[in-house]
Simulated assay, not measured.
Amino acid sequence: MNDRKPTIVLGMPADNQIHKTIESALTYHGFDVINIAVDGQEFRYPSFASRLSVKIRQALGDKHAKRRLKSRLLTESFEQQLDAAGGSADYALFIRGDTYTPEFLQDVKRRVRGNTVNYQWDGMSRFPNIRDCAALFDKFYVFDPADIRPSENYLPATNFYFDHNINLPETPPNDIYFVGFHMEPRRAAITAFARETEKLGLKTDLAIGGLDMSEAELRRLYPENIRTFIGIRRFEDNLKAAQQAEILVDFKTPAHNGLSFRPFEALGYRKKLITTNAGIKKYDFYHPDNVFVWDGEHLDGLTEFIARPLHEFPPEIYQKYSFGNWINYILDIEPHQKISLPE
C-alpha cells in the first residue's frame, strides 16, 4: 500500500502571510508542501559581499542585478527543499505567478510530474506582466469574469473559504466586521457606512490600513469608529476576526470585478454579507436574505436585512466553495465540483 502524500510546490507573494494559511490548508488536505513564497516588501542580502556586488553592478548600469540575485537565492532554496522531498514534486501551484521570473517558473515546471498551474486573484489589468508568462503553465485560472476571453485559454475560478481551523463562537461578540486598505475611490462609502452603523447602535470592528502615508494622515480621513493602522495585517488575524462577527462587509476594489475572499468566508462560516459588488447577484450562492448589495449611498432596508434569518443552502454549495474542493478543481484531481464564473 502506497501511503506517500503528494508533494506540491506553493509559490506566491508573502506580503500578508496568507501563504502560511494556504500551506496549512494544503497540509490539512493531505499534501506535503514546498513553500517558496517570496516577500515583495523585504529583502535581506545574505552577506555584505553580495550587497556590495549588487551595488557595484548597479553603478555600472546593470538594472537587474538585485533581481538576478534574488532569483538565484530562490532557486537554491527551492532545489534544497526539492532534494529533501525526493528530487521532484507532483504539482505546483502559483498564485500571482508574475512574482517570479520566467526562467524560474520554467525550472520549477521541469521538476514537477503533474500540473503546474497559476491562479490570478487580481484582475489581469492590475498586473499585466502575467500575460508574458501565462503560456508557461499547464492551466491558468482567473477570478474576474471580465478576464475570460475566447481568444485566450484562461480557465474560470473563484476565491474560496478555508475549511480547516474553523472556530466559530456560539454568540459572536461583534455585529459587523470589516478590514481593508485605504483607497480613495471607496473612502466616501466606507465613511458613510461607519456613520450609519453608529446611528444603528451596532457593535462594529472596522479597520482601515495604509501604506504610503503616516498614521496621522490616515486617521484624519475616517470617523472615530474606524480603527486605522499602517502596514500589512496578517491574513490569519483577519480570518480570526471575521469569525467573531455576525456580518462581514466587503467594499469592492475598483481595479476588478471578481469576488474577494469576504463573500466566501461569509458563505462558509454562515455569516451575512454586506457588499458593494453587485456582481455577486450572478453567483449561485447569492440570496437576498444573506447578502445585502449596497449602492454605496443609500442604506434603506439594512435594518430589515439584519433582522431576517440566514438562508441555508444545500450542502454541495458549501462544499463547492471550500478550499478542499477548490484545490482539487485547480489541480484537476477527482472528485471535485467544477467552478465557473458568471457571463
Rank of each mutant, 00 (worst) to 15 (best):
R4H: 12
R4Y: 09
K5N: 09
K5D: 05
T7N: 05
I8C: 03
V9C: 02
G11C: 06
N16V: 08
H19Q: 03
T21F: 03
A25Y: 00
Y28I: 06
H29F: 03
G30E: 04
V33F: 02
I34H: 01
N35T: 08
A37S: 15
V38I: 15
D39R: 08
G40V: 10
Q41A: 12
E42W: 15
E42N: 15
R44E: 15
Y45T: 06
P46I: 10
S47T: 14
S47E: 09
F48W: 12
F48R: 13
S50M: 09
R51A: 08
R51L: 11
L52P: 00
K55F: 11
K55M: 13
R57Q: 14
A59L: 15
A59N: 13
L60W: 13
G61S: 06
D62Q: 11
D62M: 08
K63Q: 14
H64R: 10
A65V: 07
K66E: 14
R67D: 15
R67C: 07
R68D: 13
K70A: 10
R72M: 12
E76K: 14
E79P: 02
Q80K: 15
Q81T: 06
Q81Y: 07
L82P: 01
A84T: 09
A84S: 12
A85H: 08
G86Q: 08
G87L: 05
A89H: 01
A92Y: 02
A92F: 05
A92R: 01
A92Q: 03
L93E: 00
L93M: 09
P102R: 05
E103C: 10
L105Q: 10
Q106D: 12
